[in-house]
Amino acid sequence: MLLLEFAILTRRSGWSTRDAALRLLPGALMMLALRAALTGAVWWWIALALAASFPAHLADLMRKGPGRAK
């Protein structure tokens, strides 16, 4: 589903690949953490994926700048 959403964002919405990737990366990392938790992975895999999602989210916010909604 994320690949489909990426394709729609880049082709139909006119977003650059960088914008679309930065927007979708935190969610993808959180889904990876959820999958690890549901399959019984060791705790540090879950923590690693969750910890990586926060800087990715911050990078997206910093790229947008203050006051920009898109």
Rank of each mutant, 00 (worst) to 15 (best):
M1P: 10
L2E: 14
L3N: 07
L3R: 08
L3V: 04
L4R: 11
E5F: 06
A7M: 15
I8R: 12
L9T: 10
R12G: 00
S13L: 15
S13M: 15
S13G: 02
T17M: 08
T17F: 08
T17Y: 07
A21S: 10
A21G: 07
L22G: 00
R23F: 14
L25N: 11
P26E: 02
A28D: 03
A28W: 07
L29G: 01
L29R: 11
M30A: 00
A33Q: 02
A33I: 04
A33P: 01
L34Q: 05
A36M: 14
A37H: 13
A37W: 09
A37V: 07
L38A: 13
L38T: 03
T39M: 09
T39H: 06
T39Q: 10
T39E: 12
G40W: 04
A41M: 05
I46T: 00
A47N: 00
L48Q: 03
A49G: 05
A49S: 12
A49T: 04
A49Q: 03
L50E: 01
A52K: 09
A52F: 10
A52I: 09
F54M: 11
A56Y: 10
H57T: 08
L58E: 14
L58G: 02
L58W: 15
D60Q: 08
L61N: 13
M62I: 06
M62W: 12
K64G: 00
K64R: 15
K64F: 09
K64A: 00
G65F: 11
R68D: 10
A69P: 07
